[in-house]
Amino acid sequence: MEAKYKILVLVDLSETSHETLKNALNLAKVIGGSLEVFHVKSLTNIVKNENQISAMRSLDEEKNLSKRKLQNLVNIFSKEESIPLTFDFAFGNVKNEIEHHIEKIKPDIIVLGKRRQKVFNFLGEDVTQFLLNKFFGIILIAGEGKNLQSIDGISIGFYSDTLGDYNVEITKDLSKKAISPIKFFKVRKRSSVHATNEAVNRLKSTYNGKNVVEYEFEESSDALINFVSKNKIGLLCMGRGGKKKDWTDKFIGEIIGTNRENSKLKAPLLIYGR
Rank of each mutant, 00 (worst) to 15 (best):
I182D: 08
K186P: 01
N72A: 15
N75E: 05
L43E: 02
V213C: 11
G33Q: 05
L85H: 07
K172R: 14
N201C: 13
D173Q: 01
I83Y: 10
I233L: 04
N49Q: 14
G239P: 06
N201L: 11
R260W: 12
R116L: 13
N49K: 15
M1R: 15
P107L: 07
N45P: 14
K63M: 02
G143C: 01
K232L: 14
S229D: 07
K48W: 11
F130N: 00
H18D: 10
T44C: 14
L112S: 02
E80C: 04
V228M: 00
D12V: 00
I109Y: 06
L85M: 06
H101L: 08
G209R: 05
V187I: 12
N45S: 15
L8K: 07
Y272Q: 08
V11H: 06
S82K: 15
F77R: 07
E198L: 15
E61C: 13
E144P: 00
I252R: 07
K69F: 03
L35E: 01
G145Y: 08
I170W: 03
E144N: 09
A142D: 01
S263N: 06
T86E: 02
S220G: 00
K232I: 13
R57D: 10
F89Q: 12
L123C: 11
T128G: 01
V119G: 04
K266S: 14
A178L: 03
E61Q: 12
S82Q: 13
S34D: 04
G113P: 03
I105M: 11
S175E: 09
G164Q: 08
I179G: 02
N51H: 10
I138W: 08
S263W: 06
I156V: 09
F87P: 05
Q129R: 15
V94H: 06
Y207F: 15
L269E: 03
R240D: 01
L224N: 04
N259M: 11
D222T: 13
F38I: 00
N208P: 05
R190Q: 12
E144S: 06
L27M: 01
V193L: 10
I182F: 10
F184D: 06
N259G: 14
S192E: 09
K264I: 15
Q117K: 15
S42Q: 07
G257W: 08
S191C: 09
S58T: 09
D173L: 09
G257Q: 00
E169W: 03
L8S: 07
T258E: 02
D126C: 07
I102L: 12
K6D: 03
K232E: 00
K244C: 10
N262A: 14
I46Q: 09
D222E: 11
G143V: 03
R190V: 15
N23Q: 05
I154G: 00
N75T: 08
V40C: 10
R115V: 03
V11F: 02
E218Q: 09
N208Y: 13
G92T: 00
A24V: 02
L269P: 02
K230I: 04
I256W: 03
F227Y: 08
